[in-house]
Amino acid sequence: MKADLSPRMKTCLYGLMCVLLVPFVFPTWWMVTSSVKPISDIFAFPPQLVPQNYDWTTYTKVFELQPFVQQYWNSAYIAAVVTIGTMIVSSMAGYAFARIRFPFANTIFMIVLLGLLIPSEVTIVPLFQMFLQAGMVNTHWPLILVPIFGAPSVFSTFVMRQFFVTLPTELEEAARVDGLGRFKIFRKIALPLAKPALASVAIFTFLHSWNLFLEPIVFLSSAEKFTLPQALTQYTDAYGGPMWNIQLAAATLTALPVLIVFIIAQKQFVEGLAHTGLKG
């Protein structure tokens, strides 16, 4: 039921939304407009909200200074593999915790959840040692394996488990009577019904992997293996100072796919948030 607001309430509400627009939209606006400004205009006073002079060469320089296409591909395929891998692992683990009775299931689930309480900064050094011994440093394996089997996947497992717990048990019992075994019940009944939860897991996992920063700078050392967040830090001049407009052009290109995905999948994104119980 829609509540009818009085004109005064409407004015207040729109006013509040305009104020909130500033912290939410301004950084993106500044990033996009500054990416086509000469550096001097970026720091001009009073600030130029709309560029006076356009310098489109910043976008070509993004690709000239670094193997940006390769880095784009690195980020894209790592995020895709991590997303698919996490969806598989978390849906199966979540289903097992929700539906299969085995000894100490709840205790094991609690222990698994504890993984969420450990900051990634704490585990990064032992993980580095492990991957060093396995000969996987300066490869993409750590960026794929850690999220799929580590703490990020624990969160997804939690989301999936909470979903599967709510599925009516009669559906599975009907499937048992219909002749399905445990795995087929999971694949044919539970999984297709878990699409909303899987969508939220996919969105969050993709974003997490796409934005991952600490792990790439620890595990990767060659430019052609870099992912986008790490590559952004490399647009510096001879003195290590940031080349602001080029860096912001690269940042715009980095944010672009996420923005497009968000605009297309806005509904699923909001539903996903509702599903996880997270606040934006």
């Binding site: 009516p168 009669e170 559906l171 009907a174 499937a175």
Partner: peptide
């Protein structure tokens, strides 16, 4: 074959 209280249709 079983018919459930809440139908249990897929």
């Amino acid at each position: 074959a079983m018919v459930f209280q809440n139908y249990a249709l897929y």
